[in-house]
Design a protein around this nucleic acid. Structure first.
Lengths: 155, 155
DNA sequence: TTGAAACCCATAAAATACCATGTTATACCA
DNA sequence: TGGTATAACATGGTATTTTATGGGTTTCAA
């Protein structure tokens, strides 16, 4: 039994006319071992698709329940935004998921997709957009060394 | 046996002259696995129908018991409002529920309904109203990146 | 008896599971 | 270390199942 479950690496796969893409085999392994499923949704902040395990979203549902009360407006908006957009993506025996029109449009994906590991999550990008984004992020990191300092009051 | 039970995605279904709508198959699966039932009521804050498992309402009943006094006015009002309005909705062999006149009127639903997943709950909207609401929420989220900080006193 | 609600059947469309093949990566052996 | 055999994977195509939805029939209660 493995102890770590991280989405890693950057993998380029083809998307066919039906929107089918092979989920990287590493990702599939995680899904199997956790007996969970992949959930994808449009990133709130970037032109890409974001994915994670259903388990993680389930935890988020609990967190929201605990952080806000049953009638809170924040809870209303947040849950609509996240869960309303997210969708389960089971893969077939050959390991492919079928992306929806909505997701592909948001990410500008047509016939090629790039899977980018993010640890507990991953992202799916249009190759060109990702190339640009990666350059930007790396340059940013050079200028301002990243920090994991404890977050201040207002973060 | 699955470990997670989330209402997800946004699904558009038709409502026929009798008020019948297909409950999204994903939602049905949850109901079956939890051996519970779907409960719907008019949203307190939005022009839409809200639904959840009877299980969740049961938990809410407990929460209200714990959070308020047996004789409190708040409890009286809340319980009347929610439980007085809620109703079980069993679905037929093809997976359809029959919406009541009261609910459809509150949500402005006539011949089309949009199911919006909210994690532990879901909502049913008039398509146009939902489109507007979604735009509003997304814009809001872009301005103020959502946070899951513990709730302050007044949330 | 009449209206409404629950139940059943049929069909088209959409989602998903299955099969086959070329290619790449991995393991094995000299 | 180099070369070959083997297994895993990505990808194109096809078949099967599920699902949504329209219509009809029965049942129950007012």
């Amino acid at each position: 039994m493995r102890k770590t479950f991280l989405f890693l690496d950057t993998i380029i796969n083809k998307v066919d006319a039906k929107g089918r893409v092979s989920l990287p085999s590493d990702y599939r392994a995680i899904v199997k071992e956790l007996s969970t499923e992949i959930v994808c949704y449009r990133s709130l902040t970037a032109p890409c698709i974001e994915g994670c395990t259903e388990e993680l979203l389930d935890k988020l549902a609990d967190d929201i329940d605990n952080a806000t009360d049953f009638f809170s407006e924040t809870q209303d908006n947040l849950t609509n935004l996240i869960f309303g957009d997210a969708r389960r993506f089971g893969f077939d025996s050959t390991g492919r998921i079928v992306l929806t029109e909505k997701l592909m449009k948001h990410a500008g994906i047509t016939d090629t997709a790039v899977f980018v590991g993010k640890g507990r999550k991953f992202q799916i990008w249009n190759p060109d957009n990702w190339a640009r984004e990666e350059t930007r992020i790396r340059a940013e990191a050079l200028k301002n060394r990243p920090s994991l300092a404890r977050k201040p009051e207002n973060d």
